[in-house]
């Protein structure tokens, strides 16, 4: 048995080799298969989530529709099929890398580390992390969290930032980590954590669909830098990136993007008609005026 099982690491290595070798020209592939495959998230409100009839909807889905039109025009294939595949946090990278999914329409943060594995479009949203607390706890500012337990979602890029904040402000925060954003909110609501540090838009989306949206309170102030969300696709493919970026730039230039933003962020959205009431911030306004995939303002 001993010698047999040494095969396994080899098999694992082989699988990895297989996956990274698959970065082919996306447009050629779309042309030969006649299909553009879009990946969507099931609960990333309001970017990409399941609407009333279990169909994916959201800002990123609308943007991807525009990209699909651009691809059709570029390839001169009006009959191009557009397939929708659900992806989750665990499988989206392998699916992009091995070519199952051509374009992820989600809410993925663009980082330098991640760019070693995949590529991102120009920024489609700018997010800032914030602290969410329960209104009933009476905590009104950062200092109020001193010595308390706070929650950060597992794998969230905000964890390192939160640790920095606690160090700089001598807050002595204690961190717990929840499996996903929904569970982070649950931690907050069941009193296991006094605060939740996360991208504000993700908090707003979840809090708005909770049974008691008024029970939550954002702490005032700005914490840390900006996170730029983008549509995600295979790296080292400048032709495809040009098409994706071109479609988004056109939306931004024509004012269509601003209308889409209003539709998803300042008006009632499916499935329950909640309203996130988040007007466009300065940082995103700057990016709409001058689209870019840079990581800093």
């Amino acid at each position: 048995m001993m010698f047999r099982q040494t095969f396994l690491p080899v098999a694992v290595l082989a699988a990895i080799g297989l996956s990274s070798a698959a970065a082919a020209a996306t447009l050629d592939k779309i042309k030969s298969t006649g299909t553009l495959t879009l990946g969507y998230r099931e609960s990333s409100v309001p970017f990409s989530y399941l609407g009333a009839d279990q169909k994916p909807v959201g800002l990123s889905i609308d943007l991807c529709a525009a990209v699909a039109e651009a691809v059709k025009a570029k390839l001169a294939m009006p009959g191009l099929k557009v397939a929708m595949t659900p992806v989750n946090a665990s499988n989206r990278i392998p699916l992009i890398q091995n070519g199952t999914v051509d374009l992820e329409c989600g809410s993925t943060t663009n980082t330098a580390d991640r760019q070693k594995q995949v590529a991102f479009s120009v920024a489609t949203f700018v997010s800032q992390p914030s602290w969410l607390t329960m209104a009933a706890s009476g905590i009104s500012d950062l200092a109020g969290l001193k010595g308390k337990t706070v929650v950060v979602t597992q794998g969230s890029l905000n964890y390192a930032l939160a640790q920095k904040i606690t160090k700089e402000n001598n807050l002595d925060l204690v961190f717990v980590q929840a499996k996903d954003q929904a569970e982070s909110l649950l931690m907050l609501r069941t009193g296991r954590a006094a605060g939740w540090f996360e991208d504000r838009i993700l908090q707003a989306g979840l809090a708005a669909s909770a049974p008691d949206p008024k029970a939550f309170k954002f702490l005032p102030g700005q914490f840390g830098g900006f996170d730029y969300y983008g549509l995600m696709f295979a790296k080292d493919d400048p032709d495809f990136k040009a098409v994706v970026d071109g479609a988004i730039r056109a939306q931004m230039a024509s004012g269509a993007f601003a209308k889409l933003y209003e539709k998803w962020f300042t008006q009632p959205i499916p499935p329950n008609g909640q309203n996130l009431s988040l007007p466009m911030g300065e940082a995103l306004r700057a990016r709409v005026a001058a689209p870019s995939d840079a990581l800093t303002p």
């Binding site: 694992v12 290595l13 699988a15 990895i16 996956s19 990274s20 946090a89 665990s90 499988n91 990278i93 392998p94 580390d113 991640r114 070693k116 594995q117 995949v118 597992q154 794998g155 969230s156 890029l157 717990v176 980590q177 929840a178 499996k179 569970e183 931690m187």
Partner: peptide, 26 residues
């Protein structure tokens, strides 16, 4: 699932941070 950061959870975290999913889970 309840936030104990054991081996599988660490693999998930590494995958999220680096996007090197295959290596992390491997």
């Amino acid at each position: 699932t309840i936030g104990v950061i054991e081996l599988t959870a660490q693999a998930r975290q590494i995958s999220e941070t680096t996007f090197q999913t295959f290596a992390a889970f491997g």
